[in-house]
Design a protein around this nucleic acid. Structure first.
Lengths: 190, 190
DNA sequence: GTCTATAATTAGATAGAC
DNA sequence: GTCTATCTAATTATAGAC
Protein backbone atom coordinates (compact mmCIF):
# COMPACT_ATOMS: atom_id res chain seq x y z
CA UNK A 1 0.00 0.00 0.00
CA UNK A 2 1.32 3.44 -0.84
CA UNK A 3 1.96 6.02 1.85
CA UNK A 4 -0.95 8.08 0.61
CA UNK A 5 -3.21 5.03 0.90
CA UNK A 6 -2.00 4.26 4.39
CA UNK A 7 -2.65 7.84 5.45
CA UNK A 8 -6.19 7.71 4.14
CA UNK A 9 -6.92 4.35 5.75
CA UNK A 10 -5.47 5.45 9.08
CA UNK A 11 -7.56 8.60 8.95
CA UNK A 12 -10.70 6.59 8.19
CA UNK A 13 -10.11 4.42 11.23
CA UNK A 14 -9.42 7.37 13.51
CA UNK A 15 -12.39 9.38 12.25
CA UNK A 16 -14.60 6.40 12.95
CA UNK A 17 -13.13 5.84 16.39
CA UNK A 18 -12.55 9.38 17.62
CA UNK A 19 -14.20 11.74 15.16
CA UNK A 20 -12.62 14.68 13.37
CA UNK A 21 -12.15 16.88 16.42
CA UNK A 22 -10.59 14.01 18.34
CA UNK A 23 -8.15 13.04 15.61
CA UNK A 24 -4.77 14.77 15.45
CA UNK A 25 -2.34 14.79 12.53
CA UNK A 26 0.23 13.22 14.81
CA UNK A 27 -2.07 10.31 15.62
CA UNK A 28 -2.72 9.80 11.92
CA UNK A 29 0.97 9.81 11.11
CA UNK A 30 1.74 7.28 13.82
CA UNK A 31 -1.10 4.98 12.76
CA UNK A 32 -0.01 5.21 9.14
CA UNK A 33 3.68 4.84 9.90
CA UNK A 34 4.42 8.05 8.04
CA UNK A 35 6.35 11.15 9.01
CA UNK A 36 5.06 14.69 9.13
CA UNK A 37 6.72 15.72 5.90
CA UNK A 38 5.19 12.75 4.17
CA UNK A 39 1.69 13.63 5.26
CA UNK A 40 2.01 17.28 4.28
CA UNK A 41 3.51 16.28 0.96
CA UNK A 42 0.48 14.20 0.00
CA UNK A 43 -2.20 16.33 1.59
CA UNK A 44 -2.64 20.02 2.21
CA UNK A 45 -3.52 19.46 5.87
CA UNK A 46 -5.91 17.77 8.19
CA UNK A 47 -9.10 18.93 6.43
CA UNK A 48 -7.81 17.80 3.04
CA UNK A 49 -6.88 14.37 4.32
CA UNK A 50 -10.15 14.05 6.20
CA UNK A 51 -12.04 14.89 3.01
CA UNK A 52 -10.35 12.04 1.15
CA UNK A 53 -11.09 9.69 4.06
CA UNK A 54 -14.71 10.74 4.42
CA UNK A 55 -15.37 10.41 0.69
CA UNK A 56 -14.02 6.90 0.67
CA UNK A 57 -15.98 5.89 3.75
CA UNK A 58 -19.15 7.36 2.27
CA UNK A 59 -18.60 5.45 -0.95
CA UNK A 60 -18.03 2.24 0.94
CA UNK A 61 -21.17 2.68 3.03
CA UNK A 62 -23.18 3.24 -0.09
CA UNK A 63 -21.81 0.11 -1.69
CA UNK A 64 -22.50 -1.95 1.43
CA UNK A 65 -26.08 -0.68 1.67
CA UNK A 66 -26.65 -1.29 -2.01
CA UNK A 67 -25.42 -4.86 -1.55
CA UNK A 68 -28.17 -5.51 0.97
CA UNK A 69 -30.87 -3.59 -0.87
CA UNK A 70 -30.54 -5.17 -4.29
CA UNK A 71 -30.63 -8.71 -2.99
CA UNK A 72 -33.97 -9.43 -4.57
CA UNK A 73 -37.15 -10.61 -2.97
CA UNK A 74 -40.08 -8.54 -1.77
CA UNK A 75 -39.74 -4.93 -0.70
CA UNK A 76 -40.06 -6.06 2.89
CA UNK A 77 -37.38 -8.70 2.40
CA UNK A 78 -34.92 -6.17 1.00
CA UNK A 79 -35.54 -3.70 3.82
CA UNK A 80 -35.18 -6.56 6.28
CA UNK A 81 -31.90 -7.61 4.67
CA UNK A 82 -30.65 -4.06 5.03
CA UNK A 83 -31.72 -3.79 8.66
CA UNK A 84 -30.37 -7.18 9.67
CA UNK A 85 -27.08 -7.05 7.83
CA UNK A 86 -23.99 -7.54 9.97
CA UNK A 87 -22.69 -4.38 11.55
CA UNK A 88 -20.00 -3.35 13.97
CA UNK A 89 -22.80 -1.91 16.06
CA UNK A 90 -20.72 -0.64 18.97
CA UNK A 91 -18.42 1.26 16.63
CA UNK A 92 -21.37 3.27 15.38
CA UNK A 93 -21.97 4.44 11.82
CA UNK A 94 -18.75 5.84 10.34
CA UNK A 95 -20.78 8.33 8.30
CA UNK A 96 -23.57 9.19 10.73
CA UNK A 97 -21.20 9.86 13.63
CA UNK A 98 -19.67 12.71 11.65
CA UNK A 99 -22.90 14.67 12.03
CA UNK A 100 -22.02 15.14 15.70
CA UNK A 101 -18.66 16.63 14.78
CA UNK A 102 -18.85 20.42 14.93
CA UNK A 103 -15.91 21.00 12.60
CA UNK A 104 -17.28 18.61 9.98
CA UNK A 105 -20.70 20.26 10.07
CA UNK A 106 -19.10 23.69 9.87
CA UNK A 107 -17.36 22.80 6.61
CA UNK A 108 -19.47 22.70 3.47
CA UNK A 109 -16.96 20.38 1.83
CA UNK A 110 -16.73 17.88 4.67
CA UNK A 111 -20.46 17.77 5.29
CA UNK A 112 -21.36 17.22 1.62
CA UNK A 113 -20.41 13.53 1.40
CA UNK A 114 -22.23 12.84 4.66
CA UNK A 115 -25.37 14.55 3.46
CA UNK A 116 -25.26 12.98 0.02
CA UNK A 117 -24.81 9.48 1.38
CA UNK A 118 -27.68 9.61 3.83
CA UNK A 119 -29.79 11.34 1.23
CA UNK A 120 -29.03 8.66 -1.33
CA UNK A 121 -29.91 5.97 1.20
CA UNK A 122 -33.24 7.61 1.97
CA UNK A 123 -34.03 7.87 -1.72
CA UNK A 124 -33.09 4.26 -2.34
CA UNK A 125 -35.29 3.06 0.51
CA UNK A 126 -38.14 5.32 -0.59
CA UNK A 127 -38.05 3.67 -3.99
CA UNK A 128 -38.31 0.25 -2.41
CA UNK A 129 -41.12 1.42 -0.16
CA UNK A 130 -42.92 2.73 -3.21
CA UNK A 131 -42.63 -0.69 -4.84
CA UNK A 132 -44.11 -2.24 -1.74
CA UNK A 133 -47.03 0.17 -1.84
CA UNK A 134 -47.58 -0.31 -5.56
CA UNK A 135 -47.68 -4.07 -5.23
CA UNK A 136 -49.98 -3.86 -2.23
CA UNK A 137 -47.40 -5.52 -0.04
CA UNK A 138 -47.52 -2.45 2.17
CA UNK A 139 -50.94 -0.94 2.71
CA UNK A 140 -51.25 2.83 2.94
CA UNK A 141 -51.70 5.50 3.84
CA UNK A 142 -47.93 5.53 4.11
CA UNK A 143 -45.55 7.99 2.53
CA UNK A 144 -42.50 6.29 0.98
CA UNK A 145 -40.15 9.16 1.82
CA UNK A 146 -41.37 9.19 5.41
CA UNK A 147 -40.95 5.46 5.76
CA UNK A 148 -37.46 5.68 4.32
CA UNK A 149 -36.50 8.41 6.79
CA UNK A 150 -37.89 6.35 9.66
CA UNK A 151 -35.87 3.33 8.60
CA UNK A 152 -32.61 5.25 8.32
CA UNK A 153 -33.31 7.08 11.58
CA UNK A 154 -33.98 3.82 13.41
CA UNK A 155 -30.62 2.49 12.30
CA UNK A 156 -28.75 5.67 13.18
CA UNK A 157 -30.54 5.92 16.51
CA UNK A 158 -29.98 2.22 17.12
CA UNK A 159 -26.26 2.90 17.15
CA UNK A 160 -26.81 5.61 19.75
CA UNK A 161 -28.77 3.27 22.03
CA UNK A 162 -26.24 0.50 21.63
CA UNK A 163 -23.28 2.70 22.44
CA UNK A 164 -25.07 4.25 25.42
CA UNK A 165 -25.80 0.85 26.90
CA UNK A 166 -22.50 -0.66 25.87
CA UNK A 167 -24.26 -3.53 24.12
CA UNK A 168 -25.40 -4.24 20.56
CA UNK A 169 -28.66 -5.63 21.94
CA UNK A 170 -30.34 -2.23 22.00
CA UNK A 171 -29.71 -1.82 18.28
CA UNK A 172 -31.30 -5.18 17.55
CA UNK A 173 -34.26 -4.38 19.75
CA UNK A 174 -34.98 -1.14 17.91
CA UNK A 175 -34.67 -2.88 14.57
CA UNK A 176 -37.00 -5.69 15.59
CA UNK A 177 -39.56 -3.13 16.70
CA UNK A 178 -39.41 -1.45 13.32
CA UNK A 179 -39.68 -4.75 11.49
CA UNK A 180 -42.77 -5.62 13.53
CA UNK A 181 -44.34 -2.33 12.54
CA UNK A 182 -43.47 -2.91 8.90
CA UNK A 183 -44.37 -6.56 8.85
CA UNK A 184 -46.93 -7.36 6.16
CA UNK A 185 -47.52 -10.81 7.57
CA UNK A 186 -49.76 -9.97 10.46
CA UNK A 187 -52.84 -7.90 11.01
CA UNK A 188 -52.29 -5.18 13.55
CA UNK A 189 -55.45 -3.14 13.00
CA UNK A 190 -57.39 -2.07 16.05
CA UNK B 1 -25.55 32.84 39.65
CA UNK B 2 -22.51 31.48 41.49
CA UNK B 3 -19.25 30.87 39.71
CA UNK B 4 -19.71 27.15 40.13
CA UNK B 5 -23.13 27.40 38.50
CA UNK B 6 -21.80 29.45 35.62
CA UNK B 7 -19.06 26.91 35.03
CA UNK B 8 -21.55 24.07 34.90
CA UNK B 9 -23.91 25.92 32.59
CA UNK B 10 -21.10 26.97 30.27
CA UNK B 11 -19.88 23.38 30.16
CA UNK B 12 -23.38 22.13 29.34
CA UNK B 13 -23.59 24.50 26.40
CA UNK B 14 -20.16 23.60 25.10
CA UNK B 15 -20.69 19.86 25.50
CA UNK B 16 -23.89 20.19 23.51
CA UNK B 17 -22.28 22.29 20.82
CA UNK B 18 -18.83 20.73 20.53
CA UNK B 19 -18.83 17.54 22.57
CA UNK B 20 -16.38 16.56 25.30
CA UNK B 21 -13.35 16.11 23.09
CA UNK B 22 -13.99 19.44 21.39
CA UNK B 23 -14.42 21.40 24.61
CA UNK B 24 -11.34 22.85 26.30
CA UNK B 25 -11.07 24.11 29.87
CA UNK B 26 -10.08 27.49 28.49
CA UNK B 27 -13.22 27.73 26.38
CA UNK B 28 -15.30 26.85 29.43
CA UNK B 29 -13.58 29.48 31.55
CA UNK B 30 -14.13 32.15 28.93
CA UNK B 31 -17.78 31.25 28.45
CA UNK B 32 -18.31 31.26 32.20
CA UNK B 33 -16.33 34.40 32.80
CA UNK B 34 -14.16 32.61 35.31
CA UNK B 35 -10.40 32.31 35.69
CA UNK B 36 -8.35 29.14 35.70
CA UNK B 37 -7.84 29.13 39.43
CA UNK B 38 -11.54 29.53 39.93
CA UNK B 39 -12.38 26.53 37.82
CA UNK B 40 -9.78 24.30 39.46
CA UNK B 41 -10.92 25.46 42.87
CA UNK B 42 -14.49 24.28 42.28
CA UNK B 43 -13.75 21.21 40.19
CA UNK B 44 -10.95 18.68 40.09
CA UNK B 45 -10.54 19.06 36.34
CA UNK B 46 -12.30 18.73 33.04
CA UNK B 47 -13.78 15.27 33.69
CA UNK B 48 -15.16 16.31 37.05
CA UNK B 49 -16.80 19.42 35.64
CA UNK B 50 -18.14 17.47 32.68
CA UNK B 51 -19.68 14.95 35.03
CA UNK B 52 -21.61 17.67 36.85
CA UNK B 53 -22.73 19.12 33.52
CA UNK B 54 -23.76 15.79 32.03
CA UNK B 55 -25.71 14.81 35.14
CA UNK B 56 -27.66 18.03 35.03
CA UNK B 57 -28.36 17.76 31.32
CA UNK B 58 -29.51 14.18 31.76
CA UNK B 59 -31.84 15.20 34.56
CA UNK B 60 -33.26 18.01 32.47
CA UNK B 61 -33.87 15.75 29.49
CA UNK B 62 -35.68 13.29 31.69
CA UNK B 63 -37.90 16.03 33.10
CA UNK B 64 -38.68 17.35 29.64
CA UNK B 65 -39.58 13.92 28.32
CA UNK B 66 -41.71 13.19 31.36
CA UNK B 67 -43.55 16.45 30.75
CA UNK B 68 -44.63 15.25 27.32
CA UNK B 69 -45.31 11.66 28.35
CA UNK B 70 -47.60 12.29 31.30
CA UNK B 71 -49.84 14.71 29.44
CA UNK B 72 -52.78 12.36 29.53
CA UNK B 73 -54.81 10.97 26.69
CA UNK B 74 -54.39 7.68 24.90
CA UNK B 75 -51.09 5.86 24.69
CA UNK B 76 -50.78 6.98 21.09
CA UNK B 77 -51.52 10.58 22.06
CA UNK B 78 -48.76 10.59 24.68
CA UNK B 79 -46.21 9.07 22.32
CA UNK B 80 -47.28 11.59 19.70
CA UNK B 81 -46.87 14.42 22.19
CA UNK B 82 -43.37 13.20 22.97
CA UNK B 83 -42.43 12.88 19.30
CA UNK B 84 -43.88 16.21 18.28
CA UNK B 85 -42.67 18.29 21.17
CA UNK B 86 -40.60 21.32 20.28
CA UNK B 87 -36.92 20.60 19.87
CA UNK B 88 -33.78 22.42 18.84
CA UNK B 89 -33.44 19.76 16.15
CA UNK B 90 -30.29 21.06 14.51
CA UNK B 91 -28.48 21.19 17.82
CA UNK B 92 -29.03 17.47 18.24
CA UNK B 93 -29.76 15.64 21.48
CA UNK B 94 -27.50 16.89 24.28
CA UNK B 95 -27.46 13.44 25.82
CA UNK B 96 -27.44 11.23 22.73
CA UNK B 97 -24.59 13.10 21.08
CA UNK B 98 -22.33 12.13 23.96
CA UNK B 99 -22.45 8.53 22.77
CA UNK B 100 -20.27 9.58 19.83
CA UNK B 101 -17.67 11.02 22.17
CA UNK B 102 -14.84 8.53 22.64
CA UNK B 103 -13.65 9.97 25.95
CA UNK B 104 -17.17 9.94 27.41
CA UNK B 105 -17.74 6.34 26.36
CA UNK B 106 -14.34 5.36 27.74
CA UNK B 107 -15.27 6.63 31.20
CA UNK B 108 -17.63 4.52 33.26
CA UNK B 109 -18.64 7.57 35.28
CA UNK B 110 -19.37 9.84 32.33
CA UNK B 111 -21.23 7.20 30.37
CA UNK B 112 -23.49 6.19 33.28
CA UNK B 113 -25.86 9.20 33.19
CA UNK B 114 -26.18 8.84 29.42
CA UNK B 115 -27.00 5.18 29.67
CA UNK B 116 -29.40 5.63 32.57
CA UNK B 117 -31.32 8.42 30.88
CA UNK B 118 -31.88 6.61 27.61
CA UNK B 119 -32.66 3.45 29.51
CA UNK B 120 -35.22 5.25 31.64
CA UNK B 121 -36.80 6.74 28.52
CA UNK B 122 -37.08 3.34 26.90
CA UNK B 123 -38.67 1.92 30.01
CA UNK B 124 -41.10 4.78 30.28
CA UNK B 125 -42.17 4.39 26.66
CA UNK B 126 -42.42 0.63 27.00
CA UNK B 127 -44.87 1.12 29.85
CA UNK B 128 -47.01 3.36 27.71
CA UNK B 129 -46.84 0.92 24.82
CA UNK B 130 -47.94 -1.82 27.16
CA UNK B 131 -50.95 0.26 28.16
CA UNK B 132 -51.81 0.68 24.49
CA UNK B 133 -51.59 -3.05 23.94
CA UNK B 134 -53.63 -3.84 27.04
CA UNK B 135 -56.38 -1.47 26.03
CA UNK B 136 -56.37 -2.81 22.48
CA UNK B 137 -55.43 0.59 21.14
CA UNK B 138 -52.37 -1.03 19.63
CA UNK B 139 -52.88 -4.45 18.11
CA UNK B 140 -50.12 -7.01 18.48
CA UNK B 141 -48.02 -8.91 17.98
CA UNK B 142 -45.87 -6.02 19.16
CA UNK B 143 -43.30 -6.08 21.91
CA UNK B 144 -43.49 -3.00 24.16
CA UNK B 145 -39.74 -2.88 24.77
CA UNK B 146 -39.06 -3.18 21.06
CA UNK B 147 -41.51 -0.44 20.23
CA UNK B 148 -39.98 1.80 22.84
CA UNK B 149 -36.50 1.25 21.45
CA UNK B 150 -37.74 2.00 17.95
CA UNK B 151 -39.31 5.25 19.11
CA UNK B 152 -36.20 6.46 20.90
CA UNK B 153 -34.00 5.36 18.00
CA UNK B 154 -36.15 7.23 15.50
CA UNK B 155 -35.74 10.41 17.52
CA UNK B 156 -32.00 9.98 17.96
CA UNK B 157 -31.56 9.07 14.31
CA UNK B 158 -33.82 11.93 13.29
CA UNK B 159 -31.28 14.32 14.76
CA UNK B 160 -28.58 12.68 12.67
CA UNK B 161 -30.58 13.07 9.45
CA UNK B 162 -31.45 16.66 10.24
CA UNK B 163 -27.88 17.64 10.98
CA UNK B 164 -26.58 15.85 7.89
CA UNK B 165 -29.00 17.71 5.65
CA UNK B 166 -28.73 20.96 7.54
CA UNK B 167 -32.50 21.13 7.97
CA UNK B 168 -34.96 20.09 10.68
CA UNK B 169 -37.27 18.75 7.97
CA UNK B 170 -35.58 15.36 7.91
CA UNK B 171 -36.30 14.89 11.62
CA UNK B 172 -39.96 15.67 11.09
CA UNK B 173 -40.16 13.33 8.13
CA UNK B 174 -38.78 10.42 10.13
CA UNK B 175 -41.16 11.15 12.99
CA UNK B 176 -44.17 11.34 10.69
CA UNK B 177 -43.21 8.00 9.20
CA UNK B 178 -43.11 6.44 12.63
CA UNK B 179 -46.42 8.00 13.62
CA UNK B 180 -48.01 6.58 10.47
CA UNK B 181 -46.74 3.14 11.37
CA UNK B 182 -48.04 3.50 14.91
CA UNK B 183 -51.32 5.12 13.97
CA UNK B 184 -54.30 3.20 15.32
CA UNK B 185 -56.68 5.21 13.18
CA UNK B 186 -56.21 3.54 9.85
CA UNK B 187 -56.10 0.02 8.54
CA UNK B 188 -52.78 -0.83 6.96
CA UNK B 189 -53.19 -4.55 6.65
CA UNK B 190 -52.29 -6.16 3.37
C1' DG C 1 -12.36 31.92 46.36
C1' DT C 2 -9.93 34.25 42.78
C1' DC C 3 -5.85 35.68 40.36
C1' DT C 4 -1.46 35.41 37.90
C1' DA C 5 2.62 32.79 36.76
C1' DT C 6 4.67 28.69 35.06
C1' DA C 7 5.04 24.43 32.58
C1' DA C 8 4.92 19.97 30.08
C1' DT C 9 2.53 18.21 26.15
C1' DT C 10 0.02 18.31 21.95
C1' DA C 11 -2.00 20.55 17.69
C1' DG C 12 -1.20 21.82 13.29
C1' DA C 13 1.62 23.23 10.57
C1' DT C 14 6.21 25.36 7.63
C1' DA C 15 11.17 25.10 5.96
C1' DG C 16 14.64 23.08 4.05
C1' DA C 17 18.04 19.20 3.84
C1' DC C 18 18.46 14.77 1.64
C1' DG D 1 8.87 11.66 -1.53
C1' DT D 2 10.60 11.42 3.03
C1' DC D 3 12.99 13.23 7.02
C1' DT D 4 14.33 16.29 10.73
C1' DA D 5 14.19 20.75 12.71
C1' DT D 6 11.53 24.70 14.04
C1' DC D 7 7.49 27.43 15.30
C1' DT D 8 3.10 29.49 17.30
C1' DA D 9 -0.80 28.52 19.71
C1' DA D 10 -3.74 25.65 22.53
C1' DT D 11 -4.37 22.01 26.05
C1' DT D 12 -4.57 20.73 30.76
C1' DA D 13 -3.06 21.42 34.35
C1' DT D 14 -0.04 23.00 39.16
C1' DA D 15 1.91 26.61 42.45
C1' DG D 16 1.51 30.13 45.10
C1' DA D 17 0.35 35.09 45.92
C1' DC D 18 -3.64 37.86 47.30
Amino acid sequence: MTTSERLIEATRELLWERGYVGTSPKAIQQAAGAGQGSMYHHFAGKPDLALAAIRRTAEEMRATAEGALNGGGSAYARVEAYLLRERAVLRGCPVGRLTMDPDVMASEELRAPVDETLDWLRGRLAGIAQEGLDSGELAGPLDPAELAATIVATVQGGYVLARASGSPAAFDTAVRGLLSLLSPRTSRTS
